[in-house]
Design a protein around this nucleic acid. Sequence first.
DNA 1: TCGCTTTACTTAGAGTGTCTAAGGAGAGCT
DNA 2: AGCTCTCCTTAGACACTCTAAGTAAAGCGA
Lengths: 106, 106
Amino acid sequence: MTTLLHGTLELLVLKLLEDEPMNGYAIGVRIQGLTDDALRVEEGSLYPALYRMERRGWLRANWQATENNRRAKYYRLTPTGKKQLHQEQERWGTFSTAVAKILRSS
Amino acid sequence: MTTLLHGTLELLVLKLLEDEPMNGYAIGVRIQGLTDDALRVEEGSLYPALYRMERRGWLRANWQATENNRRAKYYRLTPTGKKQLHQEQERWGTFSTAVAKILRSS
DNA sequence: TCGCTTTACTTAGAGTGTCTAAGGAGAGCT
DNA sequence: AGCTCTCCTTAGACACTCTAAGTAAAGCGA
């Protein structure tokens, strides 16, 4: 069962971090919540994605305490990350409309 | 550069074959045409995808001559393939609206 | 006739990203 | 003390697309 998420996860993470810094766990919960459980991102996908994005300079992280008094790594967008977000948003736009064109064809 | 196509190619192929049997080459050309060149599927992706789908019983193939007097493998949907198409169409629908929800969030 | 482009298929291997699975650790509740 | 929940980490399996290279026949122009 191939996941459609492939290549889209980074876009989603960038988008969520545009509004406010968040930790990985919260990002996962948020994705599930915003999509009414339609999308569930596994930890083994999410955390490596965050590391990748940090390595590429899209995110910056710092350890902080959560509201629940737990330590967590908070990620925030860098300027490069913001550019990347816009780029990927556009990429998604053209891709999804392309798919729509084919699905509407016939 | 991760491709967004990941996991969607089979849906597109199923959809195109719903209307009429086609050969691999034509499918590739058609995808490009319908999407105004937004989507280009490489042969190294398309043909293996066709083999996969045939192996799974979604497609059936037979060699035929094209209009240009060339031999080509024509694929057609099986009943199982038709079911699969509807399933994947639905999967794509919920996925893309889920992504849209997140992109609209904030 | 020769060479080039186009049509059409095949397949090995690299690359990349998601998932499964397992583990650790601290906070708070009963 | 035990349990659940939060939160992170990482190894390895798996799946798919892509790059790249090859084959081969048809048709066209010089």
